[in-house]
Design a protein around this nucleic acid. Structure first.
Ligand SMILES: [Mn+2]
Ligand SMILES: [Mn+2]
Ligand SMILES: [Mn+2]
Ligand SMILES: [Mn+2]
Lengths: 228, 228
DNA sequence: AACATTTGTTAGGTAAGTCTAACTTTTATA
DNA sequence: TATAAAAGTTAGACTTACCTAACAAATGTT
């Protein structure tokens, strides 16, 4: 049985491995930063996780999840995203409130609870942020998504996920009335600074920065599973 | 903010204070036994809780919750019983499975979560064991209940709660098909050993021991809030 | 190749929560 | 009331997860 803290390290490593798409590995400092601890602390924990054969790691080398570590990390991510869906769908939490509470709920130990919760929610495939919810066997539903910044002029797309999950960004989205499923039409791309003029739903045109366009995942196919 | 462990000590003290009805106080050994730790450990924690003014305690003396400690303990009990109700009502957990998971869920920190959960469950007053769920302000719903052993011959009563919450007892109840709300008629009381002959719902007569009759709370009025 | 910067490790220390073993105080009983 | 038993405390030690400060290895830059 893993401790609360060990679980957080595994989940951090899984998330970093998603980010560094090419090579699913991470460094000590990167891990530490992600978890809000000092590098020395991460080194200690990594040695412990290596002992338990949850990560592959040697001194001064890169860190990689073992198969066992990956499965456990996926299970935690599964719980996190199911709980986020519960809070959003059933308890009327808003988009930017669910994460903090799910960070706690993801550590509840009960296989039955997770499976019953999934059933109660109707076997959702994506969480309120549009991220895929791992299945009980570890499979990840996939959704073809690209960044808003990659969309050509004149095309219409639909928001499926956020790349940046910071509260400031989520609140900015709320202000813009952008949520999972919102339709966006790219009116004009400004080469000068990477910004673009977009139309949100049926509202008036609006300019967004390159940073913004690179923080939002969309799909060109209108086939996503609406969250609400 | 209290730690997971501190919360468990406060809740234990509240439970013991319910048990020792006359004087709502407890001893160090009693606390330790209830929490599954050694008395020395309890002494340490009690000193810490005293520092935080959550308990009244002095060396070799009895332990009592302060008003602040009691409020916090009630809040934890509230969460525990709401979660038990959620697991039972919404996720089809059985009577004897809910407690273990609620022990973990009761420590989730989010005022909004508790209140939304209560609303989602329809403001239940009693948990699946028939125990009252503290309101947000700390008030406890009351239900006039007596032990099955106190019921006179010929009277019909209705199960409202269990005094013994051990798994063996709960499973025995399940076998007898006794649940919250089950009607029981006392057919005969045997003075010799305190056992009694009872009729459960509309089934055939059955003998139960004094120990059994003293472990089950019932109400003579048929006005309880059915759990399911 | 030499040096500077970044990255990662080690050593030593702290706080929370637990333990055992030895001790003290209170309570019960002969 | 003297003594035995029960209840409670203290001292010292362990584990987990964290820190700072000093050090070592790897990497990047002239
Ligand atoms: Mn999240
Ligand atoms: Mn999410
Ligand atoms: Mn319970
Ligand atoms: Mn209960």
């Amino acid at each position: 049985m893993l401790s609360y803290t060990e679980e957080n390290y595994l989940k951090a490593l899984l998330k970093l491995s998603f980010q560094n798409e090419d090579k699913p590995e991470a460094g000590t400092n990167e891990m530490a930063a992600h978890l809000g601890v000092k590098p020395a602390t991460a080194t200690d924990m990594l040695k412990k996780l290596k002992e338990k054969e949850l990560v592959n790691y040697k001194k001064y080398g890169k860190i990689l999840l073992t198969e066992s570590g990956k499965q456990q990390a996926l299970e935690i991510l599964r719980k996190h995203r199911l709980w986020e869906t519960f809070l959003y769908d059933k308890l009327d939490f808003s988009w930017d409130e669910v994460h903090e509470v799910a960070e706690q709920l993801e550590h509840i130990q009960s296989a039955k609870l997770v499976d019953k919760l999934e059933e109660f929610l109707g076997f959702p495939e994506f969480d309120p942020h549009g991220d895929p919810i791992p299945k009980a066997n570890g499979d990840l539903p996939v959704l073809e998504k690209i960044l808003l910044s990659e969309v050509k002029e004149g095309e219409i797309c639909q928001v499926v996920a956020v790349k940046d999950t910071s509260t400031v960004f989520l609140q900015y989205l709320e202000k813009l009335q952008i949520t999972i499923g919102t339709a966006i039409k790219v009116l004009e791309r400004i080469d000068f600074d990477g910004s673009m003029s977009i139309q949100i739903s049926d509202e008036e045109a609006r300019n967004v920065s390159m940073k913004f366009a690179e923080s939002l995942f969309i799909t060109l196919h209108h086939n996503i599973c609406q969250q609400k």
